[in-house]
Amino acid sequence: MKIEISATKRVVKGTGASRRLRHAGSVPGVLYGGGKEPISLDLEQKSLFLQFRHEAFHASILTLNLEGNKESVLLRDYQMHPVRNTIQHIDFQRVNENEKIHVKVPFHFINAEVSPGVKLNGGIVSHIMTEANISCLPKNLPEFIEVDLATIDIGQSIHLSEIKMPDGVEFVQLAHGNDAAVASVAKPRAVVEEVAKPAEGAPDGAAPAAEGAKAADAATADDAKSDKAK
């Protein structure tokens, strides 16, 4: 999926200027890296958000059209408004086609429904990781990594080393000796709650019949002792 975003150079800087841009329907941003000077950007909020909501926007090489000049960039950072769900600021990094990049890429889990752990044993899949850092050249960057759960059974896990990777792509964690678990299947936990119920036919709070009988016998015994004393 090829994504192109448009921007103009932002001349006015500062907190106040950025606030005015947001009120006018724009998003302040920055373009940096590639051995060049950083450039302050002005991007249109609505068109940017339409692209931003796609998963591929966060893990793809993007084309930034800056006043007619196009550059390959990566999304590196952004801030969202805590209430309005609008983009407050966004950062892009220039991409060198000959240098490896480190990017977080999402996992797509497939075939869980046909795995022995789920289909035959009623297990529940737990997604321990939903994304991971990968290293590759820009041309090899995948939008996502598939995790095939077709063979996983109860009590088993899928680790990074067991995932089939595209050519030229590697997990950063695995390269550093950390073969982390990505997903597992476990038995569902059944929670049984025992609730004390009143005896059938008795009002709430009434003692069961057996307890009532014991109480009556005790009362009779006390009366007999009292008569002997007299």
Rank of each mutant, 00 (worst) to 15 (best):
A206G: 02
A213P: 06
G68V: 14
K164Y: 04
E44N: 07
L50D: 11
K104Y: 11
R94L: 00
E193I: 14
E99M: 10
V147Y: 05
A210F: 07
A180H: 11
P188D: 09
K119R: 12
P106V: 01
G168W: 07
Q51C: 09
A213R: 11
L120A: 12
N178W: 07
L74Y: 01
A183Y: 00
E194C: 08
S115Y: 00
A209V: 12
E162V: 04
A24G: 04
F144Y: 13
S40N: 11
L137T: 08
G201E: 03
E44S: 03
G16D: 11
D179C: 07
G16V: 06
N178D: 13
M129K: 08
R53L: 05
I110Y: 06
K9N: 09
S40Q: 09
D217P: 06
M1E: 08
N140A: 08
S26F: 15
D223V: 15
A206C: 01
N111L: 02
P208S: 01
V114A: 06
A181P: 07
I87S: 01
A180T: 09
K228G: 11
V105L: 05
R19T: 08
E131D: 14
D91P: 01
L66G: 01
L149E: 00
V185P: 02
L74R: 00
T8Q: 14
V30R: 05
K225A: 14
V185L: 10
G25M: 04
L141D: 01
T15A: 13
L174H: 04
I128H: 03
I152W: 00
A112M: 13
D91Q: 09
R10D: 02
E211S: 13
A183T: 00
A150R: 15
M165Q: 05
Y78C: 02
G14F: 03
C136K: 10
A186Y: 14
Q51H: 10
L62F: 11
N96L: 06
V185G: 06
K46A: 12
E37I: 13
R94S: 00
V191M: 07
K100N: 12
